[in-house]
Design a protein around this nucleic acid. Sequence first.
DNA 1: ATGGCTGCTTTGAGCAGA
Length: 262
Amino acid sequence: MRIASWNVNSIRARLEHLTDWLRRASPDVVCMQETKVDDEKFPVEALGDAGYAVVYAGQKSYNGVAIAARFGLPIQDVKKDLDGDSEDTARRLIAATIEGVRIVNVYVPNGQVVGTKPFVYKLLWLERLRAELAARHATTEPVLVCGDFNVAPATIDVREPKKWEGQVLCHPDERAALGKLLNWGLVDALRAKHPDEQIYSWWDYRMGAFKKNNGLRIDLILVTPSLLDRTKDVWVDKSTRELDKPSDHAPVLIDIDESQGG
DNA sequence: ATGGCTGCTTTGAGCAGA
């Protein structure tokens, strides 16, 4: 089973890229972030034409998450938002069980500037996610948590670490919050498979950052140990970032052996 | 260098992103 995570930066602005890419990359499941659209206006039909069913938790203008699965793969036990969220909180989480894998798709708050209210909210959000996973799941289950974490886990995940040192996305408090989430029982799947490679998933639109490969790896796929055992490979598909009017994020993909699971 | 790009918003300057 091939699962992808992609911050599309507006699903409506990216619809052609998305449907073209689905045909090209052929994921069984794609988790999307920053769909930036009300549920009433979600492009269900376009995804259907591409061969995918979709569940979504969206809002106007900002945030929004969705999980699409190839027709024939049932999407079960859909859960939206963190426990304790209300109707007017940002839509940042959608989870579902597909082929026996619990898939939790997150758009972690950006945090804006270190020390601000949004930054504190980001740290709290990561802790709430950890608490919710720990309350709902055992680490022996096949659980996959993916999305835009807005945290670069380590120095290797940043092309210009000195420039980013102590800044939002790279601050020790964010890395500690992510570390605590991992300590519950998750593994950063790409890093486990590629311990020494500099691989990025986001490049700033400005200053020709992509051409210089001046990026950060902030889009992650975290898995429990039983899923890591079944993981064949994890990679970033940079091809979408080369298109006209791209998302600033590229998709991250994981191939999971199906013979051992389900 | 407080800019630089992009998408969204009851359309147009301001916001949020990262």
